[in-house]
């Protein structure tokens, strides 16, 4: 049983950042703007958050530092996403190019600023955010061990973001307007919705979530931040597509990817998997093969927002 608990806990470390970042990407793409810059935004969010932790750790107690760092990561993510929004909404530029530019810009600026401030590229931090056991809930049999031991508040934040995202997208006027801008902006405009500001909102939300996701990704992974998130921003894009731009499916996709990643990297320490003669490459391939298969079968009725990637020009209505 303890192996199952262990596996679930490890899966969380992979899945939660993927979930948060993919949900971020969802807001941007449902508003009609492709956001390939998720990787770069994650780096900037993680950078700002870790830098804050590095400076204020010790001066403030553990969990409040993390919460403020998450807010700072969100703000940094929004600032990073702003040029992307400006280029692709106001300037009507190719959205892939400004996204790629941010991906190239982010690690460089993270290294540059870190070296100016600290003279060292790596920013160390002490992981004092892990919760050994949540009071009361952690003692519940089975469930307590599955979800409330060896965890982070970011895990619950991830689920909260999921619920809020679903509500916002499907149960509020804002969500309806956002989705309409991604499907048929001309029609949305004709009923008085400001397409530009809705798209700005979408990209800004994606910036905030990707920034948070970057910080959530780094904390359990290392003891310092070295200007990289190891390609997980691109993986989140795959999760987004695999999840067909829908919150519920994105959740499943994120956990599928996370579970496969966790199994692939930890099977050697798990007794019953160790003895099955399946090479680790199989587990490593599984999420990507699954993505290809799903895309191959669903591409004809793909759920991609119809106006995604097309700059909206009010004049050509």
């Amino acid at each position: 049983m303890s192996i199952i608990y262990f596996l679930v806990q490890q899966t969380m470390f992979f899945s939660i950042p993927l979930l948060i970042v993919a949900l971020g990407g969802m807001f941007s793409e449902r508003s009609g703007v492709i956001n390939i810059a998720l990787e770069g935004i994650m780096i900037m969010g993680a950078f700002a958050g870790i830098l804050f932790i590095n400076i204020f750790q010790g001066a403030l107690p553990g969990q409040p530092v993390l919460i403020i760092a998450l807010i700072i990561a969100a703000a940094a993510g929004m600032i990073t996403a702003l040029p992307h929004a400006y280029a692709s909404i106001n300037m009507k530029a190719d959205q892939v190019i400004s996204g790629t530019a941010i991906n190239m810009f982010a690690p460089a600026v993270a290294i540059y600023v870190a070296r100016i401030i600290r003279t060292v590229q790596q920013i160390p931090f002490v992981n004092q955010f892990r919760i050994e056991k949540v009071p009361v809930l952690g003692s519940v049999p089975v469930l307590g061990e599955l979800f409330f031991q060896n965890t982070y508040i970011t895990t619950y934040l991830g689920f909260a973001i999921l619920v809020v995202s679903w509500l916002a997208l499907y149960k509020t006027p804002f969500g309806l307007r956002l989705r309409s801008c991604g499907e048929h902006p001309q029609a949305a405009d004709s009923v008085g919705i400001n397409v530009y500001s809705m798209r700005y909102a979408g990209v800004m939300i994606s910036g905030a979530l990707a920034g948070i996701g970057g910080l959530v990704f780094v904390i359990p992974t290392s003891t310092n931040f070295n200007a990289t998130v190891s390609g997980y921003g691109f993986l989140a894009l795959a999760v987004l597509i695999f999840g067909q731009w829908k919150p519920g499916r994105i959740l499943m996709a994120a956990f599928f990817f996370g579970l496969m990643k966790a199994v692939a990297s930890s099977y050697s320490g798990i007794a019953f998997l160790k003895d099955i003669p399946i090479p680790s490459n199989f587990y490593k391939m599984a999420p990507y093969v699954a993505t290809l298969v799903v895309l191959a079968f669903t591409s004809r009725k793909s759920m991609a927002p119809r106006a995604e990637g097309i700059p909206y020009d009010q004049g050509s209505r």
Partner: peptide, 19 residues
Amino acid sequence: FAATPEAQALAASWYNDGT
């Protein structure tokens, strides 16, 4: 030579297994 969640999970599983 990079810090990755994969390396973290691998090490965590070994420690969990008694290493």
